[in-house]
Amino acid sequence: MFVPDLQRHGEIVAYRGGGSAVNYEKLNKTGCTALSIKASNINSVENTLEAVASSVAAGANVIHLNVHRTRDDQLVVFHDWTLDCAT
């Protein structure tokens, strides 16, 4: 799997592919990204093609996505380890 060298300076990284801003203090308490989203004017959902396209259009140099392997050996792009908090 390709992992870029992020030790370079000046790179703009779109974490979670872009999408809504997250309150990390709340995330650390709840462990649930969906419950930690900040109100903003960003309408795209993280880890989607729309969010990635918006991030690239805004000048992101690196797109950070969380890729997980499912039990049936498929790859999915999803931030959390389980679906519990998003479904």
Rank of each mutant, 00 (worst) to 15 (best):
E50N: 07
N47H: 11
K38W: 03
V45L: 07
A51Q: 13
E50I: 10
C32L: 03
K26L: 03
A39Q: 11
I63Y: 02
N28H: 00
N28D: 04
I37T: 04
S55F: 15
N28T: 01
C32N: 06
A58T: 05
L35N: 06
V45Q: 14
S40F: 13
V56N: 12
A34R: 11
A51K: 15
N47E: 09
N28L: 00
V52K: 14
E46F: 02
L65W: 01
I37G: 09
G31E: 03
G59M: 00
S54F: 15
V52W: 12
N61Q: 11
H68A: 04
A53E: 14
N66M: 09
T48P: 04
S36I: 02
N61H: 11
V56A: 09
N61T: 05
N61A: 03
V56S: 08
L65V: 08
L35K: 14
C32R: 04
A51S: 15
G59Y: 05
T48H: 09
I42G: 04
T70I: 11
T48S: 08
S44M: 06
N66V: 08
L27I: 03
A39G: 09
L27D: 00
A51W: 13
V62Q: 04
N43Q: 12
S55Q: 08
N28K: 08
V56M: 05
L65Q: 02
H68V: 04
L35W: 11
S36K: 07
A57N: 15
K38M: 13
A34D: 13
H68G: 03
N28W: 01
A58L: 07
A58W: 09
I63T: 02
L27K: 01
G31C: 10
E46M: 11
N61Y: 05
V62I: 10
